[in-house]
Structure formats: C-alpha cells, structure tokens
C-alpha cells in the first residue's frame, strides 16, 4: 500500500464532487461524462452547446494539468496499442448501453441513492477487478 495517496485523493474527490454539484445547481444536469459526450453524438439536438462547453472545459482543464502537473497525464508504456483500442471500444459501447460510467452512476447515482446506479457500480467494479486479476495474475 506504499502508493496510497490519501490527501490528494480526498482533495481531488472534493473538487470532482463540487464540479458535479455545480452542474446540478447551475444547469440542472447530472455530471455523467459518458452521457454528456454520448449526447453530443446524437445530432441534431437542442442541448449541444452546454454539452460541448463541458467537454471543452474538461480538455482545457487537461491542458492546465499538462502545464502545471504533467506527471498526472503519464501512462505506463507496457500496455499495447491494441489493448487501448479494444478497451476504448468496450468503454464507449458499454457506458452507452449501461447508461453511465464512474461519474454518472458512480458519484452522482450513488449519492442520489439510485438502485440502478448501485447495481451498475457493483457490476462494473466486479467486472474491472476480475479483468485486472486475469490480466495480471492468470495470463
């Protein structure tokens, strides 16, 4: 457990929670990233601008990270191109079919005490833990 970073984890979580709460307070929307991004692909719709603006904000925030805190964007090099291509497809398709990801079901759904989100989070956590177990300890 020597990699445990409790302070930055709690602080980062606080900012994530505040940003999600802000989107509810100002825009009346759930901060589910897969839903916001997926909605952008459902052209044409009337609510494209705030969705586009939120995604642009995420990318801009990422630029800020790159500038001030570049070690946060590092990636292990021992994972193949193909792995990331397959993983991306599964994440894109799966989050749309399951109507949410770590933010929408994870943070917002759990906090709203939604039974659907409890079921989704339990399922994707179990599935991800099993995947890592197989990749790291079986293969």
């Amino acid at each position: 457990m020597e990699n445990f970073t409790p302070l930055s984890a709690a602080l980062g979580g606080l900012l994530i929670g505040l940003a999600a709460a802000g989107l509810l307070l100002f825009n009346g929307r759930i901060a589910g990233i897969s839903g916001i991004l997926g909605g952008l692909l459902d052209l044409p719709r009337g609510d494209m601008s705030w969705r586009g603006a939120f995604i642009a904000g995420l990318l801009t925030g990422g630029l800020g990270l790159l500038w001030f805190y570049p070690q946060t964007l590092a990636l292990p090099s021992d994972y193949s191109f193909i792995t990331y291509a397959v993983a991306g497809l599964l994440v894109g398709y799966g989050t749309r079919l399951g109507s949410g990801c770590t933010s929408g079901h994870g943070v917002c759904g759990i906090a709203r005490l939604s039974p659907r989100s409890f079921a989704a989070v339990t399922t994707f956590m179990a599935s991800a833990i099993l995947t890592v177990f197989i990749v790291r300890h079986v293969l």
Partner: peptide
C-alpha cells in the same frame, strides 16, 4: 453495459472523464 465497461476500464485504467482530461 456495465460488464463491458468494466472490462474496458480494467484493461486500460481509463474511464471516460479521465481519458478526456488526459
């Protein structure tokens, strides 16, 4: 959908928000 998402998350370590931020 959640099973598929979990497999992709476990393979890559990325979920949608962090991937966009990165």
């Amino acid at each position: 959908g959640s099973v598929l998402f979990g497999i992709g998350w476990g393979l890559s370590g990325y979920c949608p928000g962090p991937a966009l931020a990165a």
